[in-house]
């Protein structure tokens, strides 16, 4: 594998977006790009990552390779990332380490790190990325982040309901309750403020607040978030990158007994 990001912070943002949700991950590299999925220790949150060749300045993968890494270690190396440097990932044919080369031609500087790869035994799950959903919402990730931060303070359970009138996020704590209603809008001056809802039926689902606090760490990937809800599947919270691919979080709901 030889894959070069023209801006090293792209990879840093991707890794930082889920490094607190899961401890380790297998990156599966093929000529169609880098794909990964990992489940958190409590098996409630599934992270999926897709970095297609379009995200790279140059991308080459001669034979399919799996790269297992501890995310805490990789995140430490990526602290060196900045917008002036490129980052090339190298993995040899017989992979036992990942080489990261940061280059800042303007500053005549380069940095090289090596990360030991780890054997991770993890089942790949059959996840249909085009899964049908009853409700799809596209909204500002900044707005979503603020709403999650405000409401999750009040309760460890977070409810989302969507009707024709809009999307309602609500919490019911022991001493306080809160509710945020967001209605569809079109902001011609700033398209990232738009909120759109498409739905075939209403939904009303509850999730554990702590996972939503993990998910919003990915908001730096995109100023938009796509939400997909159905009665009978985990919710999908998806951040898509400008150049294709992105990071998705499938979150299993809580059900009333």
């Amino acid at each position: 594998l030889e894959a070069k990001f023209d801006d090293s912070t792209i990879f840093k943002k991707i890794i930082d977006s889920f490094k607190d949700s899961v401890t380790q991950i297998n990156f599966v590299c093929s000529e169609s790009g880098i794909e990964a999925q990992a489940i958190d220790d409590s098996r409630v949150l599934l992270v999926t990552v897709s970095i297609p060749p379009s995200c790279f300045e140059s991308y080459r993968c001669d034979r399919p390779t799996t790269i297992g890494v501890y995310l805490a270690s990789l995140a430490k190396l990526l602290k060196s990332a900045n917008t002036n440097s490129s980052l090339t990932l190298y993995v040899a044919d017989k992979p036992d380490e990942l080489l990261l080369l940061f280059e800042e031609p303007k500053n005549q500087k380069s940095m090289e790190y090596k990360l030991k790869l780890v054997d991770i035994t993890a089942d790949m799950l059959e996840v249909d990325s085009d899964m049908k959903s009853d409700v799809t919402v596209e909204m500002s990730s900044v707005e979503f982040t603020k709403t999650v931060r405000d409401l999750t303070q009040l309760s460890d359970s977070f409810t989302v309901s969507v009707t024709k009138d809009g999307i309602v996020f609500s919490v019911q704590g022991d001493t306080a309750q809160g509710k945020v209603l967001l209605q569809p809008r079109e902001d011609l001056a700033d398209e990232s403020n738009n909120l759109s809802i498409s739905m075939s039926k209403t939904i009303d689902l509850s999730f554990a607040s702590k996972y939503l606090l993990d998910i919003i760490k990915a908001a730096s990937i995109s100023n938009k978030i796509f939400l997909k809800f159905s009665d009978d599947t985990p919710a999908l919270f998806e951040f898509k990158m400008e150049k294709g691919g992105g990071v998705g979080f499938y979150l299993a709901p809580k059900y009333d007994d």
């Binding site: 409630v44 949150l45 799950l125 996840v127 359970s157 985990p234 499938y250 299993a252 009333d256 007994d257």
Partner: peptide, 14 residues
């Protein structure tokens, strides 16, 4: 009372 579902309840292993 509510119970937390698991990802494995919904997705099967490839």
């Amino acid at each position: 009372k509510s119970s937390q579902r698991s990802i494995g309840d919904f997705f099967s292993v490839k």
